[in-house]
Structures are given as structure tokens and as C-alpha cells.
Design a protein around this nucleic acid. Structure first.
Length: 280
DNA sequence: AAGGGCCTCAACCGCTATAGA
DNA sequence: CTCTATAGCGGTTGAGGCCCT
């Protein structure tokens, strides 16, 4: 089937937008609001494709867009979210008010990626010179299942749970594993424990006793808050990414359920001697 | 001053997801 | 259920500016 073009090809202008075109677009959208992009160019008197208009608005003209240099705090947030989600630019942009996915993508490709390389980190795997000996390939890990898993877990067990909070919990929990490795008797906060709790099959997604309630069992609000921007150990981050990536791969199978992920996690813990297993 | 290479980022392309008829 | 239109996403391109020789 031939794909319907988004606009008639004849007479369509491409390339950089002029201030006059911007003004026409802004004036039209202020009057009529967003939407109807296909017919917008003609109504607004623009010789542009509707898609081009939408992108121009979304990435450049929208009044809430923040321009100018990225702050160190934003840099930090982008790096950490990218470590967790991979190239999910739109998802990352949701966590940075006023920044567009295109902005972040460009900034990542032109600045942050280089900076990580200069620090001796692989910008894709976030691996330094392999200080932990951890090898994702040994576990048949995929590239970026973590964001998918987060979405899935959030949907399944906590419809209303704040995605950022969930991300923060799992990021922060990786640092707790480090503490566990030094004090193996305290495994209450291990990744395995948390995910097992998340995976309780008897808890319906929308029931009062859902995932968001279970979180309170393990973490206070202050702890969760502290966890959020607390990832400095890239080796442990990689371990967690690996766990989540693997789960992202197996979730596509018909028999997939979160309990399967937990079984894998448990077996992996035993296999690698990660002391995450002493939980009920 | 010239010009070649590099860098940045706006814009485009191709694709998927989703809504609604 | 199918089809179409639209929105949204991530990857890529290329114009223009900057820097270095």
C-alpha cells in the first residue's frame, strides 16, 4: 500500500523558517489552538507541510520552551535518565521542564556524549574500564528494556504512580545494593525485594493496596527523595540496567509475566553471587 | 585573508502508535 | 474489524557559523 503523503509535494517550501512564517504560524495557533496540522498551512497562509509546522511549533515557537545553555543540574539529570532509559528523548524531555526532545537529543550528541567519553565511560553502556567485571552479554541482555519495563510495571501495578518517582526508586536502589554487599544481613531494601513486592500477582493494579502502597513499606518519602539523584556508581547502574534490559527482552513472550522476571533475577543473583537473595 | 574541517542545531525523513470514522 | 488521518518519536541531514592553519 502506498503511504499517503502528509502534504501535497508541489509548492511546498522546505528549509529554514523566516520570521514572517513564524509570525503567521504563531498568530494562527494563538487564534485557533493546536491541532488540525494537515489543513493548518493553507488556513494560515503558509507554503509548508503540516508536519513541518507542527515541528516548528513544538521545537521552537512554543511559548513554554526554555532556551539557552543547559545548567549543570540539567546535564546531570540527562545523563542519569539516559543511563536508565537509553535514547528515549521524549521521556527524558518530560523530566526537564521547557526542554524539547530535539534539544536534548542534539545536546546529548554534541556535548554530553563527548564528555562521558572524555571521562572514560562508554556513552551507550555507561561502562568504565569494566571495574566490576560485569558483562551484560553473558546474560543475553538487550539494549534498552529498562524504560519499557518501567512503563509496564507502572501500568500494571500502579496506574497513578509517578513515573519519575519509580525511576528514582530503581535508580536509588542500585546504590543500596552496594551497601548490601558490605552488610549482607540487611537485604530488606534490595532490588530483588523491591521487585518481588512490585510483582505480587495477587495485587490488582487499581486496588487500594497497590504498588504505591507497597513502596511505603520499604521507603520513606525522604529516602525516595534522597535516592533520586544518587547514582555515582556506574558499575552498579550497569548491573541494574542489565536486569531491567533482560526483563525487557523476555516481556515480549506470550507467557511473560513479572514473576518470570523475578525468577530470572533470583537465578542471576545466585549465579553471580550478588547477595540479593535473603528476602522472604 | 582564505579555505578547509569541525561543530551545532533546526529541520527533515521514515516509521510506529493511536484515535476515530 | 478495517482504514485513514494525525500525532509523536528517534535517526539523520545539511546550512551556517566558528576555528585553525
Amino acid at each position: 500500500m502506498v503511504r499517503t503523503p502528509c502534504c501535497k509535494e508541489e509548492g511546498i517550501k522546505k528549509g529554514a523558517w523566516t520570521p514572517e512564517e513564524d509570525q503567521k504560524l504563531i498568530a494562527y495557533l494563538q487564534l485557533h489552538g493546536e491541532g488540525g496540522w494537515r489543513t493548518l498551512p493553507e488556513k494560515a497562509g503558509l507554503k509548508r507541510c503540516g508536519k513541518s509546522c507542527r515541528l516548528r511549533w513544538a521545537n521552537y515557537l512554543r511559548p513554554d520552551i526554555k532556551r539557552g545553555e543547559f545548567t549543570p543540574e540539567e546535564d546531570d539529570a540527562i545523563i542519569k535518565l539516559h543511563a536508565l532509559m537509553g535514547n528515549k528523548w521524549a521521556a527524558i524531555a518530560n523530566s526537564l521542564a521547557g526542554r524539547t526532545d530535539n534539544d536534548i537529543k542534539n545536546y546529548w550528541n554534541t556535548n554530553l556524549k563527548k564528555r562521558l567519553k572524555q571521562k572514560g565511560l562508554d556513552p551507550i553502556t555507561y561502562k568504565p574500564n569494566n571495574p566490576t567485571g560485569f558483562e551484560p552479554a553473558n546474560h543475553k541482555l538487550g539494549s534498552s528494556g529498562s524504560a519499557r519495563l518501567l512503563n509496564r510495571v507502572a501500568k500494571k501495578y500502579a496506574v497513578d504512580v509517578n513515573r519519575d518517582l519509580l525511576t528514582g526508586i530503581i535508580i536509588g536502589n542500585s546504590t543500596i545494593i552496594a551497601d548490601d554487599s558490605q552488610n549482607s544481613s540487611d537485604t530488606e531494601h534490595s532490588t530483588s525485594t523491591l521487585l518481588k513486592t512490585v510483582a505480587k500477582p495477587s495485587v490488582p493494579a487499581t486496588s487500594p493496596g497497590s504498588f504505591s502502597d507497597d513502596l511505603d513499606v520499604f521507603f520513606s518519602n525522604e529516602e525516595i527523595s534522597d535516592m533520586y539523584m544518587n547514582v555515582d556508581n556506574v558499575g552498579l547502574m550497569e548491573e541494574l540496567k542489565g536486569i531491567l534490559s533482560y526483563a525487557g527482552d523476555i516481556k515480549d513472550s506470550p507467557e511473560y509475566n513479572v514473576s518470570d522476571e523475578m525468577e530470572f533475577l533470583d537465578s542471576w543473583n545466585e549465579e553471580d553471587g550478588l547477595d540479593l537473595e535473603n528476602c522472604s
